[in-house]
Design a protein around this nucleic acid. Sequence first.
DNA 1: AATGAATGAGAATTCATTCAT
DNA 2: AATGAATGAATTCTCATTCAT
Lengths: 210, 210, 210, 210
Amino acid sequence: MPETDLLSPAAAGKREQTKAQNRRAILDAARAVFADMGYQAATVRDIIRRTNLSVGAFYNYYRSKEEVYEALSDDGARRFRPILAAQYESAPDFQTYIRGAVRAYFYFLVDEHNSWQSGRDPADRYPHVHSETPEMKAVYDQVRWSIADVLAKGQGPLVDVDYLTAACIAIAREVGASMVERDPIEVDDAVEFAVQMILGGLPALPRVTP
Amino acid sequence: MPETDLLSPAAAGKREQTKAQNRRAILDAARAVFADMGYQAATVRDIIRRTNLSVGAFYNYYRSKEEVYEALSDDGARRFRPILAAQYESAPDFQTYIRGAVRAYFYFLVDEHNSWQSGRDPADRYPHVHSETPEMKAVYDQVRWSIADVLAKGQGPLVDVDYLTAACIAIAREVGASMVERDPIEVDDAVEFAVQMILGGLPALPRVTP
Amino acid sequence: MPETDLLSPAAAGKREQTKAQNRRAILDAARAVFADMGYQAATVRDIIRRTNLSVGAFYNYYRSKEEVYEALSDDGARRFRPILAAQYESAPDFQTYIRGAVRAYFYFLVDEHNSWQSGRDPADRYPHVHSETPEMKAVYDQVRWSIADVLAKGQGPLVDVDYLTAACIAIAREVGASMVERDPIEVDDAVEFAVQMILGGLPALPRVTP
Amino acid sequence: MPETDLLSPAAAGKREQTKAQNRRAILDAARAVFADMGYQAATVRDIIRRTNLSVGAFYNYYRSKEEVYEALSDDGARRFRPILAAQYESAPDFQTYIRGAVRAYFYFLVDEHNSWQSGRDPADRYPHVHSETPEMKAVYDQVRWSIADVLAKGQGPLVDVDYLTAACIAIAREVGASMVERDPIEVDDAVEFAVQMILGGLPALPRVTP
DNA sequence: AATGAATGAGAATTCATTCAT
DNA sequence: AATGAATGAATTCTCATTCAT
């Protein structure tokens, strides 16, 4: 409730900039930490340690580990949603949609993958960890929903919708995960593989009576 | 005052039996607890609470929470390995092998699923937890290895082995997970779906030059 | 949920005894700490420090500072209630009741006062503290209630009940507090003073119309 | 950009005025907050939240939370001292002095009470807190001292000075506290009650030999 | 002077593991 | 072997105070 702004605009701008940087630093650190050791095992201190902020600073930006997780999810979803939506709108048939969605997802993964460097080997210290960033989860949820939607609208074959969704998602997820482990990363090869796997399997699937 | 060394063989046998029972009780409790809330969130007290035992007794049987996890993994792997091995030995071709492996995996899942009752919905209290029991993980690793092996031996098509393994595993995992959520569980339908998805996709896959 | 009690009765008894001792040690430490620096300023660590227990042990016995406070209150109330009740039952008139209650209260105070030794000077480090133990508060509440009750039943003069209660309580409290500061403590003198102060003032009080 | 040193005297005066206003705003806020939740539980942010100021500004005016407390005490004492002193000078006897002092104290209380509005009921959130503003404490100390002085000078009866002081103070305090809880507040009735309680009790008190 | 983000010591609490009985 | 209280490091979060702007 300051009465007036006594700071110069420049100074105020710098303040804002620093805040934005710190916010991002926390998110980046959190992404790396969650990827390294999983959400459950990660502690707020782990996140802070990858930052040059103090404990207090963390709590100035986020009220808990949970809130960071949400922010990360939102971040991923927000960036991926428009891409996926475009595919969804423009695709004339199921095949085209699948290809577009998988491609979009894989490029997103590569992007994510490039944006952080895991400092040390995760699984060594914290076993049993499913490294899945909240962003991946958010994107994955989006894809799941849109596949289900396309199928539900009858634009796909008359198969078990749940199973097909699960299978598509599964393929995209795992092939994607396998892809980003390689060096160099060949996105188009991976897209082709996943798409053929999905589409090739379709004709043979057991039909259901709606 | 504890019983002394002056036991009859019968009494000694009884004691062995009790030990085995306790060991199993701990594993059963741990399986349920890990499934409910994940390894990290689970506390040793959570485990022993589902047991007749005291904290101290727990540590007589396992030296740490970690060790219980390992034991659970071993347990699952040990039970599943022979089944899978049989498929592996007897299968004349890739198709047969896949069908056998998926069927074996799905029946294993159903078995696991029936063996514990999640008291309440875990995800409510512990968000972002991918409940995956150590046993599932172990079995999954086995399947992954054997698929890779079959492919490596040239009994499958000339495709990207890593990707195919990943895709097969992914399909089996997710369709399987989807299957056990249903009531009633129709194992054979799910097997058929997963198998067709995998095998149907094969011919269309991009070939690689070895 | 131990199957049987394998401990000898003697050992079990010792366990129980130790627990009782620890429980008391915590209460004693808490009483002293609350008296020294007030409930608000007191920390759980302050309490533990006056004990040879560990942090964890504290939480084995009480779940929070608050719970210790409650226990202390209950303790005081439980010990004082019967004494006060006896006065209340047997007193033929207001004068007798007041004298009995004040006497009981003062003896209780002396008892309390003797039971703990403030290690260092409180007010130096934690200013603005109203040193009032929860036990004193509980007893005080009892007395307040019983005076109000006696007056409400018409056994006292027709005066403003709230004010009279407040005044009686106030006199007892402050004269009592003053009393225990002295060395030697002369309980009977203090009782006499307080009682005369209360009863002497009665006739002159403004009457109210009920 | 802050104003520079090139200010007109008028502007400088204005700044002085602002400083005084801020100082008062902090004190008012602090009084309310301390009353609501006690000194310990109150945070500096609680205080500035009831203010137009920033954290930094707070520390421009007072160097610590403690210092604010002191300032409040001084404030109350400073305002009340002259009033009490006047009574003290002009009173021909003990009776008159007591009546004057009590009346002055009660009017002071009413004044204090009107000057802040407790937002919600404090005791709900912070148990066991005897909300006593530093100002009340300061005034109370003054009264205590002056009664003791009057008695010491032999203008009162030959009774136990400590006890009488304690009792007078106690009555004034508690009846006063009870008074301000009422709506409407009837100061004169309360004064009459307290004065009669004190003076009425005097003749009956045990005499001491000096 | 004002601003409000940053700091970090310190508070409450949990929990894997040990150990006396 | 069994028991369960004790331990204390580790965790989350708060808040008085400082300091760059």
